[in-house]
């Protein structure tokens, strides 16, 4: 038993290394438009879920940890979103997306919204970190206004 152990460990190691190399290769290859669209939709759902958590907490027990976690999720996922709108992932991608073509024809405005979004999300994290429900509530509204402003301009209304 003891003799076979190093061999087993080596086998696992080799397999793990191979998997790492393989996944590394996958990560460097450009993901398909549909994969990018799915990824950003999943991210927006995370943001939506975090916003709901904040709203629930603000209307309920205003739990500091829950609010801070949610705010951090929004800030972190928001930063990831910036990279998930490459050219070719709009309505012409052939996958269902509410992203309007205006994102790519008016990119500067869109990027401006994204920058504002992250700034507001950071302020939300700061407010949540202080644990002041009133400040979180005010920043939640500012955050929501930023979401809405971009969505009105760049997302199909469903």
């Amino acid at each position: 038993m003891i003799r076979t152990k190093p061999f087993t460990l080596a086998a696992i190691g080799a397999f793990g290394f191979a998997a790492l190399v393989a996944s590394g290769t996958l990560a460097t290859a450009a993901p398909s438009a549909s994969a990018t669209i799915s990824a950003r939709q999943a991210n927006f759902k995370k943001i939506g879920g975090a916003m709901k958590t904040l709203k629930d907490e603000l209307g309920g027990s205003a739990d500091k940890v829950k609010m801070l976690t949610a705010a951090k999720t929004i800030a972190a996922v928001g930063r990831a979103q910036v990279k998930l709108f490459p050219a070719g992932t709009g309505p012409s991608a052939g996958v269902k997306t509410d992203a309007l073509a205006a994102i790519w024809t008016d990119r500067a405005t869109f990027d401006g919204h994204m920058t504002k979004f992250i700034a507001e999300a950071d302020k939300l994290v700061a407010a949540a970190g202080q644990g002041n429900a009133q400040a979180v509530g005010a920043q939640f509204k500012a955050m929501g206004a930023t979401c809405g402003a971009c969505h009105r301009q760049f997302r199909a209304d469903d």
């Binding site: 939506g48 879920g49 975090a50 709901k52 904040l54 709203k55 629930d56 929501g144 969505h151």
Partner: peptide, 11 residues
């Protein structure tokens, strides 16, 4: 969809 607006029982 944004988690901004909800009914009173959504929580």
């Amino acid at each position: 969809v944004d988690g901004l607006e909800s009914g009173p029982l959504a929580d």
